Computed example of a mutant assay.
Amino acid sequence: MNKNWKLIRGRLNKGAKLLLLIAILAAVIYWFKFAPVPVEQHQVERGKIMDEVMGTGTLDVKIKMIISSKISGRIKDVLVDQGDKVSADQLVVTLDDDQLKLQVKVALANLETVESGVNKVQRDLKFAEVVLSNAVKTYNRYRKLMPKTISQETFDKATEELGTSRARYSRAEAAVIEAKNKVVEATKVLELRKAQLDDSQIRAPFDGIIINRERDRGNIVIPGSAILSLISTKVLWVRAWVDETEFAKIKAGQPAGIIFRSEPEHTYPGKVARIAIEVDRETREFIVDVNVNELPVNWAIGQRAEVYIETDKKDNALIVPEKYIKWRNNVSGVFVDNGGVASWRHIKTGLHGGNLIEIIGELQEGDSVLNPISLKNKLTDQMRISVQ
């Protein structure tokens, strides 16, 4: 009897353990499959929303130039350095001008010489003019007296003298023209030498900032070789690359926010200045130039920034954070709390600004939308939820 009881009790213990194991397994399955999913909720509200287009680019300037020399020479001094502000017509570089000054003196002396030559040939021309005038008078008088009063020989001499006087006058006249041409030529040479001397003084063409210095004192320069790089700070902009799908939204004059990577917490105001009409064939992006109305204390040409261009806005739209928008079969919607159960609502979206999205559809202000707290959980229609 005792043996049978022991056998029965052993079997009962094994059965109880098996039942306990099945109960625990069932509880675990129920917990993971049917237990409420922890969610966070957000009340739909009305507020301001802006539709923005984002682009990434670098700070640049509209007006920039390389300051170079018009003539060949040796740099005597560079009067400014990188980071210096300069004014229009300010002297920034000087070249060695000793030879140029000597050339100006030589050209000036040559001009004075040819000008004195003009005076001489002009006196010769006046003398030739007087001689020709007398020869003409003598010839006319002798012609009237021929052949009664004077001989043929005398008249022939008067005729010959007239021809000689005319030739002398023509030579004197040509000499005056040639001398005047030499004066013009010498004047041009003097102007050239003076211009070259002036070119040894290199000046800033406009107000701006020197951003680079390429040459130092004693360096040899030729026409066109870079000495300094100058930018104008009147117009600075971010040249941002924007995806071509946004092309139709962007227009000149739209306001924009600019965030420099050196100051990610601060947004600087800007405005769209111009839009490129060519799309990069590889990246499928185009350039938008956004004027910078205000700059950080420390800035540099070429530093990276993001621009957020405001393409549209509404002041009284139904809005929710983007993370509450879900997609089912390419259809947008949200889950709402329906008495502890998640209920799917199809919606349409409108403007998209920052992390907010405009809701168009069945929701109303004050409705609660849901989002699972854990990324491992995924809401489905009629799923039990637990609002945390």
Rank of each mutant, 00 (worst) to 15 (best):
Val44Met: 06
Val136Thr: 14
Glu263Phe: 04
Ser225Gly: 06
Lys126Gln: 15
Val53Tyr: 02
Lys17Tyr: 08
Asp381Gly: 01
Ile275Val: 12
Lys376Glu: 14
Leu12Thr: 02
Leu18Glu: 04
Ser200Asp: 04
Val369Arg: 00
Pro321Thr: 05
Asp199Lys: 05
Gly47Cys: 12
Arg261Leu: 05
Gly340Met: 08
Ile209Glu: 11
Leu132Glu: 01
Ser133Glu: 06
Thr233Tyr: 09
Val61Thr: 11
Gln382Ala: 11
Lys313Ile: 04
Ser170Asn: 08
Ile227Leu: 07
Glu153Ile: 12
Glu45Arg: 15
Ile220Leu: 05
Gly218Ile: 06
Asp60Lys: 08
Ile231Phe: 05
Val189Tyr: 02
Ile22Met: 13
Ala135Met: 05
Phe260Tyr: 10
Ala317Leu: 12
Val297Arg: 12
Pro321Phe: 03
Thr94Gln: 09
Ala300Ile: 02
Asn338Glu: 06
Val369Pro: 00
Arg261Gly: 04
Gln82Pro: 01
Lys70Ile: 01
Pro147Gly: 05
Ala88Cys: 07
Arg304Pro: 07
Tyr139Gln: 02
Asp337Glu: 03
Gln196Trp: 04
Leu351Met: 13
Asp124Leu: 15
Gln43Ala: 14
Met65Ile: 00
His352Glu: 13
Val183Met: 07
Ile49Thr: 03
Lys101Leu: 11
Arg74Lys: 13
Ser374Val: 03
Glu45Ser: 11
Ala256Phe: 02
Arg345Thr: 03
Lys64Arg: 13
Arg166Ala: 12
Asn219Ala: 13
Gln43His: 12
Lys188Gly: 10
His266Glu: 09
Gln388Asp: 11
Asn110Ser: 11
Ile63Leu: 12
Gly15Cys: 10
Phe335His: 03
Thr159Trp: 07
Leu79Thr: 02
Val136Asp: 11
Phe155Lys: 09
Thr187Met: 08
His346Ala: 15
